[in-house]
Amino acid sequence: MRSFKDHNPISVFVFYIFAIVPAMFCINPVLMCISLAGGVSFRLAKDGLGALKKMLPFFAFPLLGVILNPLFVHKGVTPLFILNNNPVTLEAVLFGLTLGAMICSTVIWFSSFNSIMTTDKLLYVFGSVSPKIALILSMTLRYIPLYGQQIKKVRQAQIVTGLYKEDNAIDKIRGGLRIMSVMVSWALENGIITADSMSARGYGAGRRSRFTIFGWRTADVALAVLCAALGVVTSVCMGIGHLAFEWYPEIVSPGMSAPAVTAYIAYALLCAIPTVLQIREEARWRSLQSEI
């Protein structure tokens, strides 16, 4: 059974791009509400009610926006009250709220992105550009823990052999430099073995192909195409419909023009995709489970 997170990482990546990026360039309360609703409902569908507690701190952003923006921005025609000889305006408060909501929804989308897109999936997405980049990224990820372990071992060896002082800060810096220099020769020395191992297995013998454990099924293609289509429709309509609000000096809404409505509907459908897929899979699983 495949829920949203089990689809091909490229499809998932396409979704996140269109869910997060357009909304970031358009401070529009309707889009913010849709984005926030989509992000929150997906986390709830994926992780259950416990996720609510984890998301709670993110809602400090709209609150901060409401408090901080009017303190620094005094534009706007509707003063609410005067603070320190400066007017606090309704426009500044509402802009702060919307901006805070945007940051909040972005962070919530990223929280699910992080748990779904593990390093190997990201590697697959960026490695799609070329097999060479894929290999370089993979080797880098291999070497980070390997070097980390070796540095720890060398450090311990220096302590227990009792040959070097570690009495003050200068000794410690010296110790660090010693480790640095020994790591360079260690890496070069053992890099030769890796290079041998690579050429022994035919590296450089010709054009490389690329193997991944992620495949493309019809559902993956459909998901990617759907996300891209909805995303493009949203973006284009945003462009022609001038969806961005004018906030200062007076709030001017773009109104419910045809492109605006299309954009809202398309974006709402897009943001609902992961939640719908998640709930559908769970329902299917439950009905299948009852037959086992």
Binding site: S138, L146, N190, I193, T194, S197
Partner: peptide, 12 residues
Amino acid sequence: MQRPEHQIVTDK
């Protein structure tokens, strides 16, 4: 070869 660690090229 001898050292298991260094013949491995990739991360997975």
